[in-house]
Design a protein around this nucleic acid. Structure first.
Length: 452
RNA sequence: GUGGCCAUAGUUCAGUUGGUUAGAAUAUCGGUUUGUGGUACCGAGGGUCGUGGGUUCGAGCCCCAUUGGCCACCCCA
């Protein structure tokens, strides 16, 4: 037997049923993006390697899928070079790792054509050479909405509303966790470890996984002073409402200019969101939230489903004050969010949250007994289709009824129109409702009326 | 990059202390039923047991290697 064909690790095929469900998610997200005034763009699957390298940290660089140069890629190259240097010699393109960096590149490249603030959305696959596991794929879709060229916090508020709108429509209960990089900076400053902000935030981020003791241990191991840890401790253990947290932080960070700024921002966002009222999503101020530290400078968002077994985030985002600076366009502030369509799909699947209408496509199947009947049906079929009704005819003339009915049953087609010699003579077609089993003699015009 | 678990039909799995033609369910196709699907009954096809090596008279089962999958860490959508 020949080797069974397969696809690369961490990638998936999607069946018709899966595609219908995925499109439902994409459509929902797209509609919300458009409702808030975001317009679509697309960028290539591959970027120049130099565009991507160094934007996601050392870990990220390793996870970028590099594309081997075409032709004799080893010509004139010293193959004994270190892996990292060799990569740059034999690869100059790579699959995109996210949508934000290509977007930044797009903005810089097309800056003279763009009116700012620029609100764009982008729904495309990205690739990461990660080791796959639950909710983690090597090829997956991100659905990004970003606004660039505006410092206003109203953007953060609107993004929160968009998250709420999407998950309300999809009927997924979620909690939106919000933090601010400036608060994290303020904390590091206040405890006298300003330089080690990344170490500190990465450790605090693990709080709900390894507990307060674990966090303290990790801080010690990473050379954070005892004095600093002691100052940090009440903060780690603080519990309360958003307002209580804000007030607590105000006291704690009063000596840090950046910290105070961060609290002000967060306070504005929460107060405005609360005044406007969300539909179903919960919001939470989570100072342990530390993500995308390589470029976020202000607000940080993360969304988790309140149902199901998937513990990783299904949406994330934040503000970056200078993402385009690295491509030569400084002082361009942006804020955005990214929905993980594949993880959302997993949650909806697990919870069985698809509306009925997501299943059916074809409304009616013409069932015939031979070529004469088929020929009779073809103009009727055209008529039905012209009326905008999804319909099909069983293509093989003379196939057994059992076969044709089974086809309709399998495709969950709600109606079949049976045409034999009687029907051809009288023009009264037999329309059968597949779920109730009832059938009636009816004219084609009435079928169209009924199914429209 | 580190660690754990697993690998038998398209799919989900059984397979006794190692023993002769590797089973079931489900799916597919056909029949009972040539103008009526979902149910029922009958039948068929489909496997060099992930791959390579070793131990043994004999390996789906034991040993080694390798590849792939799932899960956790790291990181992230």
């Amino acid at each position: 037997m020949a080797q069974k064909p397969s696809i690369p690790k961490g990638t998936r095929d999607f069946s018709p049923q899966e595609m219908v469900r995925r499109n439902y998610i994409f459509d929902t997200i797209k509609k919300v993006f458009q409702r808030f005034g975001y317009l679509p763009i697309e960028t290539p699957a591959m970027e120049n390697l130099s565009t991507l390298m160094g934007k996601y940290g050392d870990e990220g660089d390793k996870l970028i899928f590099k594309i081997l140069n075409s032709g004799d890629f080893k010509s004139g190259v010293d193959m004994n070079l270190e892996a990292k240097q060799l990569t740059n010699k034999i690869s100059e393109k790579a699959l995109k790792y996210d949508l934000t960096v290509p977007f930044a590149r797009y903005v810089v490249q097309h800056q003279s054509e763009i009116t700012f603030p620029f609100k764009r959305y982008q729904i495309q696959p990205v690739w990461r050479a990660d080791r796959p596991q639950k909710g983690r794929y090597r090829e997956f879709y991100q659905c990004d909405a970003d606004v660039i060229g505006s410092n206003a916090l109203i953007n953060e508020v609107e993004l929160t509303q968009m998250i709420d709108d999407v998950f309300t429509t999809l009927k997924v209960p979620v909690v939106i966790k919000i933090n601010n990089r400036k608060i994290l900076g303020g904390i590091a400053e206040v405890i006298g470890e300003k330089e080690k902000i990344i170490t500190i935030t990465v450790a605090i981020d693990k709080l709900d996984k390894i507990g307060a003791d674990g966090v303290i241990k990790e801080l010690q191991e990473n050379g954070i002073s005892e004095a600093a840890i002691q100052k940090l401790q009440p903060l780690i253990e603080f519990k309360g409402t958003i307002l209580e947290k804000v007030n607590f932080l105000k006291g704690l960070l009063s000596s840090s200019e950046i910290g105070v700024k961060g609290i002000e921002e967060v306070e504005y966002i929460f107060k405005t969101v609360e005044a406007l009222k969300l539909n179903t999503a919960e919001v939470e101020l989570d100072i342990t939230l530390a993500r995308g530290l390589n470029y976020y400078t202000g607000a940080i968002f993360e969304v988790k489903a309140n149902v199901g077994t998937l513990s990783s985030s299904i949406c994330g985002g934040g503000r970056y004050d200078d993402l385009t600076g690295i491509f030569g366009l400084p002082n361009m502030s942006g804020v955005g969010i990214s929905f993980g369509a594949d993880r959302i799909y997993d949650v909806l699947n697990e919870m069985n949250l698809y509306p009925e209408s997501v299943a059916a496509s074809t409304k009616v199947l013409f069932v015939t007994f031979g070529e004469a009947e088929q020929n009779y049906c073809l103009p009727l079929l055209a008529q039905v289709r012209k009326a905008g009704i999804n319909s099909e005819i069983y293509p093989d003339a003379g196939a057994k009824m059992k076969k044709q009915m089974g086809y309709a049953d399998d495709k969950k087609i709600p109606f079949v129109c049976i045409v034999g010699s009687d029907e051809m003579q009288s023009g009264m077609l037999t329309l059968k409702n597949m779920s109730s089993g009832e059938q009636e003699k009816i004219r084609i015009e009435d079928i169209i009326q009924k199914l429209k």
